[in-house]
Design a protein around this nucleic acid. Structure first.
Lengths: 161, 161
DNA sequence: TCCTATCGATTGAACTTTCAACTATCACGC
DNA sequence: GCGTGATAGTTGAAAGTTCAATCGATAGGA
């Protein structure tokens, strides 16, 4: 059913045609942009979007290491998903697991040298793609708007538990 | 690796700290918003985001029917994904397949009465969620900016094949 | 007419994500 | 010290997606 035309007798606050058009463009973007970026990453570096950002997050930590739970937050993943993902990266030799000496419950994901090297190879191509698809296309004003909008929506989601 | 600090000798056009911050917020949004919307849809209507928009697209067509390929475009899916998805919806009685009499290669996905009824049940809750998370949060100016930004990025992606 | 290429769609296998159940460790009150 | 509950992470199965192979229908040329 179209969100533009009420056919139920329930809530009356449907989207206006204009709002609907914006929504369609935006959902399309939320699908297409990740797809486009992943295509480049897979092609050139055999990495998915999440894998790249997991490695990237590790590379920014002192000691190239991080607790699984913290990494899950940075990589926008649930713990279970991250655990599987790290297992796969471990098999490829990009990451290893080490127990946290200060807390027996915690596990550190540690970037290996091979993993770091792979990331260093992958980063320029990925960043170039982000530039081409986003930063070269929007002017600073539009970028700022995007950031504000993103922050507002995220705050709203966060504020509901 | 951080996109903010070059460690490779290749391309020099890294993101500035400001650009990087914007990018992080935006990727976070691209993950969180669909997740939040899907949570509501699954909870209240046992539908995924794609399933909802596939049913919605069908409901807007004359005869509540559409060729698989066209539906794939509207639902932001590849044909294979859509084929599996329609099979699942078919099992639940929301959709059926019919051959296209005008072209033996084509198949129509047809919304059943049960499927339409389910969509009518689902729509108000979903639209309310979109309102709450997006339209109630952004002012018309910001919405407009979002739309322009989305259009520009999509155009850019489309223009590269 | 036949041969080939292309199109629209399906299929099954491989892969990834999700979900629920489980293990192990720690924190706290008693 | 000893249960009880919360925390951190893993695991396996189920669900969903992606990829490559396939199949039938059609279009276009020799």
């Amino acid at each position: 059913m179209s969100e533009g035309l009420p056919t139920s007798t329930e809530q009356p606050r449907w989207l206006s045609p204009d709002e609907l058009a914006t929504w369609r463009r935006f959902t399309f973007l939320m699908y297409r942009l990740p797809t486009a970026l992943e295509a480049q990453l897979r092609q050139d570096s055999q990495l998915s979007f999440v894998e790249y950002y997991a490695l990237a997050a590790l590379s920014e930590q002192p000691g190239h290491r991080m607790r699984m739970g913290d990494l899950a937050v940075l990589a926008n993943s649930e713990l279970s998903r991250l655990s599987h993902l790290i297992s796969r990266l471990e098999k490829r030799g990009f990451v290893r697991r080490e127990p946290d000496p200060t807390n027996g419950r915690c596990i550190h994901a540690v970037l290996t040298d091979a993993g770091h090297a792979h990331l260093v190879e992958a980063a320029p191509g990925h960043v170039a793609e982000v530039r081409k698809l986003v930063y070269d296309v929007l002017d600073p004003n539009e970028l700022d708007g995007l950031r504000t909008a993103a922050e507002k929506i995220i705050d709203c989601i966060d504020s509901r538990q």
